[in-house]
């Protein structure tokens, strides 16, 4: 239960900070999307047999969709597709020393 609730709280506050706090700090006009980077990074370093990264991608996508003007699903589907694609590529073609494949 903890494993399910903690990411909800973390990503919710990260997206809030992204939309209300970090927008004031742009680097060359661009505000880095911390929650999105975290979701990608998680899927990158996670063991390919684990699917917790997909859950995280869904959560980040959901909260980004809530606080954006785009249709619901833009970030959810986009991030999930990215997470699945990343897992597929790492499983098939990439050998990263610090990431266990199975």
């Amino acid at each position: 239960m903890k494993k399910i609730l903690i990411p909800i709280v973390i990503f919710y506050f990260l997206v809030l900070a992204q939309t209300s706090f970090l927008v004031h700090f742009s680097i060359l006009g661009v505000v880095p999307n911390i929650s999105l980077i975290l979701a990608v990074f998680w899927n990158f370093i996670e063991k390919t047999k684990n699917y917790f990264g997909l859950y995280n991608a869904f959560l980040v996508g959901f909260f980004l969709d809530v606080f954006s003007q785009r249709f619901f699903g833009f970030y959810i589907l986009g991030l999930l597709a990215m997470a699945i694609f990343l897992k597929f590529i790492i499983r098939k073609y990439v050998q990263i020393p610090f990431v266990e494949k199975n």
């Binding site: 809030l16 939309t19 209300s20 706090f21 619901f72």
Partner: peptide, 26 residues
């Protein structure tokens, strides 16, 4: 997407006090 007004409305209502504080601090 069908209930987007209700879902977004709920989250905005729930989050607005925190967001107002974050916006001012930022």
């Amino acid at each position: 997407n069908v209930f987007q007004k209700e879902v977004r409305g709920f989250f905005y209502w729930f989050s607005s006090p925190i967001q107002k504080v974050l916006w001012r601090i930022g």
